[in-house]
Amino acid sequence: PTPPYLRWAESLHSLLDDQDGINLFRTFLKQENCADLLDFWFACSGFRKLEPCDSNEEKRLKLAKAIYKKYILDNNGIVSRQIKPATKSFIKDCVIKQLIDPAMFDQAQTEIQSMIEENTYPLFLKSDIYLEYT
């Protein structure tokens, strides 16, 4: 069978589907001061998984606000800088009007994912940290 570390090089999704791959990628991103990109990506996926229902409305609102505050509000943050202004204002509107939809971070997540795929993921595959691991 193909060793996991070779599968990590096939696609970003293969890497993010493996706990060891995530850990190594996160260590690399931390060195580059951009681990927030990965945390934000997973936060968006986790948020989408929370089914809207009466018992967790408060939690979803609190979480949407927390994601907005931590990653999007500060325009100088690594995540915020990679998200289009229109996408940011859409999310801001959702939070202010308390229109909490499971898909409200989808566009932002897509933008961050494209940036990872074009930039940090290829760099990771060429990094010492990955090469040493293999």
Binding site: L16, A43, S45, G46, K49, K62, L63, K70
Partner: peptide, 20 residues
């Protein structure tokens, strides 16, 4: 603030694959 961070951390973990 702590509980916000906990909530975020829990959300991030919930999206990660389980250790194989």
């Amino acid at each position: 603030i702590d509980s916000e961070d906990d909530l975020l951390q829990e959300c991030i973990s919930s999206a990660m694959p389980k250790k194989k």
